[in-house]
């Protein structure tokens, strides 16, 4: 038994797979630096990141798996769950040690874990596509702050880029402190200072360069495969104009709330179903469920 210690990046994870096949140490416990506690009885091996090794493993996976499974793999990684890393590691080792087609074995715990975690992430992605509510600011920007359970911004980028092609928008992940900004041409990754809630946007005075962008550093390769084009170039977001809501914003927010109320059929009230579809943790971002104004 040996502990493999990785830094939590996709690169590190893929390198761990490489190192396992290089050394064949038998059963391995995979830990991220974040969740690592030294163990007196088990040896620890620090996995160093190496782009070439990671790239080889990634290319190997792409040869063995179809696009759907590469996406499952990427989505599971974006879940950021502590147990997802070891599932991914075990899954990759299982795929490489078996003939092609092994990913269809849903009886295998790691295959099933990957398929189920990916399903959760896709659900969160879909929820973000549904629950994001833009607010129109006075300088013509459509803004929305979110805190999704999983890191789904890379997955929803194309959806919003295609859909809102004729308006400038920002979607900001308040939990992971980065966001997407569309300037009518391309989507850029941005970082803002002191943002806690959408209301605080007006306090932003400067934006700083993002040192370590969230997008994975394996060039082109991964993004292409996962159909999330590698257009995010982390960039300074130039100082925004004073962010206040446009004058029409409160009217349309009100009309939307009215509509939400009018379209409800009281005789069919079913609160359980309502909450099942719109869990309470999302209410704070939904115009129609917010109590204010």
């Amino acid at each position: 038994m040996i502990i493999y210690l990785i830094d939590g990046s996709l690169e590190g994870l893929l390198c761990a797979v490489f190192e396992w096949f290089e050394r064949k140490p038998g059963p391995v416990i995979l830990k991220t630096v974040q969740h690592y506690q030294p163990d007196a009885f088990i040896q620890t091996f620090q996995v160093d990141n190496d782009l070439n090794k990671a790239d080889r493993v990634w290319k190997g996976l792409q040869r063995k798996l179809d696009k759907r499974w590469i996406r499952h793999f990427y989505c599971t990684f974006l879940s950021e769950l502590p147990e997802a890393y070891s599932s991914l590691f075990e899954f990759a080792c299982y795929i490489f040690s078996n003939p092609p087609g092994a990913e269809a074995n849903y009886g295998n715990a790691h295959v099933l874990a990957l398929s189920q975690t990916a399903h959760k992430v896709e659900r969160e992605k879909h929820r973000m596509e549904a629950f994001i509510r833009f607010e129109h600011t006075a300088d013509g920007m459509f803004y929305c702050g979110i805190d999704p359970d999983f890191n789904v911004l890379p997955l929803i980028m194309n959806h919003f880029k295609n859909r809102y092609a004729d308006q400038r928008w920002i979607i900001y992940d308040l939990k992971r402190h980065y966001g997407l900004y569309y300037d009518l041409h391309i989507v850029e990754e941005i970082q803002m200072k002191n943002v806690e809630s959408p209301e605080n946007v007006e306090n932003i005075e400067s934006a700083e360069h993002k040192e370590n962008p969230q997008s994975i550093q394996i060039p082109g390769n991964l993004e292409g495969a996962c159909s999330t084009e590698n257009e995010t170039t982390s960039k300074v977001w130039s100082k925004p104009a004073k962010n206040i809501r446009s004058d029409k914003e409160s009217l349309y927010a009100m009309l939307w709330k009215d509509y939400f109320k009018s379209t409800n059929i009281v005789a069919r009230k079913n609160t359980k179903l309502h909450i099942q579809h719109v869990p309470k943790r999302y209410w704070k971002y939904l115009t129609e469920k917010r109590q204010d104004s």
Partner: peptide
């Protein structure tokens, strides 16, 4: 370059209190 792009599976943006 207009507004909107269909989502093949459709999206439910919210749910009324009757579910």
């Amino acid at each position: 370059k207009g507004l909107g792009n269909s989502h093949a599976s459709g999206i439910c943006h919210t749910y009324t209190e009757d579910g």
